[in-house]
Design a protein around this nucleic acid. Structure first.
Length: 426
RNA sequence: GGAGAGGUGGCCGAGUGGUCGAAGGCGCUCCCCUGCUAAGGGAGUAUGCGUUAAUAGCGCAUCGAGGGUUCGAAUCCCUUCCUCUCCGCCA
């Protein structure tokens, strides 16, 4: 959510920033709506002043037992009522209109974010690890099915397409990955482990920006809960509608949760395998910081996610997303793309974003500085650390052996009961 | 799921239609007194919005949230969220 005052301060710059995000100009309409709103406020307040003064006098007259004066005053304000009602309705309506208009506008990019339309314009920041050219490399689902531990048919029978059943060591590998990532982030990077709900109300999903614009991407229960598409929703909303003490910042949360996405716009894409599922698990990182610390925190958070890849010995590159390719709430985003030999390409495995006060304003999440009297909106960041399902995919494709087995990277050995490889199950 | 109670300022806690943004206490800040790691006295101590050069002044709103009744609501009505108690059910 944008601050309407910033729009008023510099409408041209605002529209230019929107254009970068592939959004139409909106400043003029927003300002017109805000002008009307302010006029309605002024009108309503003037009427309220009159009403309050008169009511006070009525109270005094009644207290003094002067009923005649009280009656006269009451007659005086009688017709004020409908005018006030109308002015208040007007104000409410215009406020709702303004909020509705603001709530569907994407966040604007930081100055160092490259311009561009889509992923073709993203900028490679760095590449880590060697990219092995493997001839006829197998895809993860071929490997998993050959291992006898990845079952898409069973999942389809239970739930339909875009689900998977893992068994044996692959099931355990998923659990190992979640535990390994949580342990890393909590013990080495200072994140607080959280176990949040995966069913939430409108407010929470609105706070992080998935609502009201992206309902079609979400699953909803019959009684109105939303299934969280990412723990970003719950972890970020932990500070909603609160004033946090500046001394408590930064707050850093991590959680390993299932994530649910309808993938409405992805028909036909990644239909095979575990790359794109309706349900997948992910370890999420969220930071709540003061404004001045936001950009540095993005580097830190990204580094935390990268460390997972490094410890697993996976090759990857870091992409700085162009303005047109970023998510709705982001001001700047790094995508981590892991090398997948089976696909002979890099695939996104983490997305780390700095959102500025965009979510803070939507959530009404503020902090108070010890020396400053007023409050400010907190700045928020989130990133995957990492998407567990896709990490499992990467391990299969990168550690696949000629005999069909899959080596387990050393960092995971303790989590796999000392096992060093996954072999075919008969 | 059934029955009941309740949500007031940083905290505790008064207040059931009229000078209530809200008594009192605690905490905190500043000042005075005291000269010793105490006590006492005084003042102050919410947030948002509008107006504005202004975090000056003035105004409006806010007693969980949103509506409503009324000239006037923390106080009455409706809706909703949350907390607690008892019963039922249950991992």
């Amino acid at each position: 959510m944008h601050d309407i005052n910033l729009v008023r301060d510099n409408p041209q710059a605002f529209d230019a920033a929107l254009k970068q995000r592939n959004a139409a100009p909106a400043a003029a309409a927003l300002i017109a709506c805000d002008d009307a709103r302010k006029a309605a406020i002024a009108k309503a307040q003037a009427l309220q002043t009159t009403r309050n003064e008169t009511s006070k006098k009525i109270g005094q007259a009644k207290g003094a037992g002067d009923d005649a004066t009280a009656e006269a005053l009451m007659a005086e304000v009688a017709d004020l009522k409908s005018a006030l009602q109308a002015a208040e309705d007007d104000e409410r309506k215009l406020k709702a209109e303004l909020e509705a208009a603001l709530s569907v506008l994407p966040n604007i990019a930081l100055p160092d974010v490259p311009e561009g339309l889509d992923e073709a314009d993203n900028l490679e920041v760095r590449q880590v690890g060697a990219v092995a050219g493997i001839n006829n490399a197998a895809q993860h689902f071929e490997i998993g099915e050959a291992l006898g531990q990845m079952d898409f048919e069973a999942a389809a029978a239970l739930s339909g397409s875009r689900f998977v059943v893992l068994r044996h060591d692959l099931a355990r590998l998923e659990r190992a990955l979640g535990n390994f990532m949580l342990d890393l982030h909590t013990s080495e990077f200072g994140y607080t482990e959280v176990n949040p709900p995966v069913l939430v109300r409108d407010d929470a999903v609105y706070g992080t920006g998935q609502l009201p614009k992206f309902t079609e991407d979400l699953f909803r229960t019959e009684n109105g809960y939303w299934l969280t598409p990412t723990a970003e929703v719950t972890l970020t909303n932990l500070v909603r509608a609160q004033i946090t003490d500046a001394a408590d910042l930064p707050l850093r949360f991590t959680a390993w949760t299932p994530c649910f996405r309808s993938e409405a716009g992805a028909a036909g894409r990644d239909t095979r395998g575990m790359i794109r599922q309706h349900q997948f698990s992910k370890v999420e990182l969220v930071s709540i910081v003061e404004p001045d610390d936001g950009e540095a925190e993005l580097e830190r958070l990204t580094a935390c996610a990268e460390e997972v890849l490094k410890r697993l010995g996976l090759s990857y590159r870091v992409m700085l997303l162009c303005a047109g390719d970023m998510g709705f709430s982001a001001r700047k985003t790094y995508d981590l793309e892991v090398w997948l030999p089976g696909q002979n390409s890099y695939r996104e495995i983490s997305s780390c974003s700095y959102c500025g006060d965009f979510q803070g304003r939507r959530m009404n999440a503020r902090f108070r500085n010890a020396d400053a009297k007023s409050t400010q909106y907190v700045h928020t960041l989130n990133g995957s650390g990492l998407a567990v399902g896709r990490t499992l995919v990467a391990l299969l494709e990168n550690y696949h052996q000629e005999d069909g087995s899959v080596l387990i990277p050393e960092a995971l050995h303790p989590y796999m009961g000392g096992r060093t490889k996954i072999e075919v199950v008969k």
